[in-house]
């Protein structure tokens, strides 16, 4: 069984992002970049399926500037077998990413795609669902548990009221939620080994896909800030403020 894991290079989870002065974007120069945390969970889940003997091959794919190859190397260092780097200099929306991934899936024919439920930069939560629509495959979003039986995958999904269990025919798309697993750290020997693993390069132009953005970003601005209030000294004072000043209880 072959698993494809798309990975995205994003601003690191711990960075407090700032809006650029000209309000065109957030500041991305000299900012620490990492693999999207949900994609790390996806890589980890693929590795566990391989360790259980369910999967035989894991391919990591990333799309963007040459730097995204670092993210692919991270996935290889965690244990993925090979990488695909789609070289693309234009800004991409989830719709275009889903089209590029559709084209790759048609070529390498994975049995399963595991990917993050959202990227922590644009917070879109869209690519997985769009990809499954385009491939006409079943989807299991927000996975917190997963089990493969024959040609089907059983997934526990995190929904607003709890967990929903569904069964999806393979090939399928799974998007990962936070508690599916805890991703491993790459060991030094594995980081060294990853340098010798193959990464195929594809130029996005060669795929003949319309990647023109459908949304123009007119402005990126700071959210309304919230002023700090006051510190109270006792529970009595807190209750008094809530009752008489804020009038919320």
């Amino acid at each position: 069984m072959k698993i494809l894991v798309p990975v995205k290079r994003v601003v690191d989870y711990n960075v407090k992002v700032r809006v650029k002065k000209d309000e065109t974007d957030v500041e991305l120069d000299n900012v620490k970049m990492s693999m999207n945390p949900f994609d790390e969970i996806a890589v980890e889940e693929a590795l566990r399926l391989k360790e259980k003997g369910v999967a035989s091959e894991i391919i990591a794919v990333s799309i963007g500037l040459p730097e995204v190859q670092e993210t692919i190397r991270n996935a290889l260092a965690m244990g993925a077998d090979s990488g695909i780097f789609v070289n693309c200099t234009s800004k991409l929306e989830p719709l275009s990413v889903a089209k590029i991934l559709t084209s790759i899936c048609n070529k390498i024919k994975p049995d399963l795609v595991i990917m993050g439920k959202q990227a922590i930069d644009d917070d879109m939560n869209a690519t997985g669902q769009m990809l499954s629509a385009m491939l006409k495959w079943g989807q299991a979003t927000f996975a917190s548990k997963l089990e493969i039986q024959d040609k089907k995958i059983k997934v526990g999904r995190e929904i607003d009221g709890g967990i929903e269990n569904i069964e999806v025919n393979l090939p399928a798309i799974v998007t990962t939620d936070l508690r599916l697993n805890e991703p491993r750290y790459a060991s030094l020997p594995n980081i060294m080994k990853a340098k010798r693993k193959p990464i195929d390069e594809i130029k996005v132009e060669d795929l003949n896909i319309d990647i023109e953005p459908r949304l123009d970003i007119l402005k990126v601005e700071e959210p309304k800030s919230r002023e700090a209030g006051i510190m109270v000294k006792s529970v009595d004072e807190m209750i008094e403020k809530l009752k008489n000043e804020a009038k919320v209880i």
Binding site: E93, P94, L95, A98, D123, M124, N125, A126, T127, G128, Q129, M130, L131, S132, A133, M134, Q139, T141, F142, R157, E158, I159, D160, P213, R214, L215
Partner: peptide, 22 residues
Amino acid sequence: TSNGKNVAPRLAGLLDTMIIPD
């Protein structure tokens, strides 16, 4: 909601349109 987030992007994929979430 978890429902909307599950369905809306799939619909956008079917209709070849870029979703505008949240």
